[in-house]
Amino acid sequence: MRNNTVKLTTLALSVSFALILSYIESRIPTFVAIPGVKMGLANIAVIFTLYKLGIKEAVAVSFVRVVMVSVLFGSPVSFIYSVSGAIVSLCCMVLLKKITPLSEIAISVVGGVMHNVAQTVVASVILGTSVVQYYLPYLLLSGSLSGVAIGVVSAILIKKINLSRGR
């Protein structure tokens, strides 16, 4: 019973953490006018949950975040972009965490880049013309740079925050 309450509270906190990060991100003006270039702050919450709580929990946090962000600040179209990016990125991160010795940082980079790749593919479908080859170099570069930053922050949080304390 107590464990359930702890788990429920931790999950709820992770979701609110992800939501706050998404909101902060939406207030930061884009400094490069390429669609898809962004920090991906919310990925900190997803990576944190993935390492601290597990795969199922990370999927839950990611999915609830995407739905709530779209309802609160987005549109049906932005939902399609976010959900496809989130699914592909999370699948890649889970897979790499399981089968490779990569650390949080490289996993965050791959997650960020795959998020961009999925969104570019969706953009091609929505626009009815392939934009992948044109935007991919920009997104690979920005995705890897922001992925490193997000990965470093996540690694620090994973190391410093002890969820079982006070139990």
Binding site: L102, S103, A106, Y138, L141, S144, L145, G147
Partner: peptide, 21 residues
């Protein structure tokens, strides 16, 4: 040592984008 594979992965992604540019 710990981050060796990480560094290889990250640098290769950046390299691919730079070559494309």
């Amino acid at each position: 040592q710990k981050y060796r594979i990480d560094i290889i992965v990250i640098l290769s992604v950046i390299l691919v984008s730079l070559v494309a540019f």
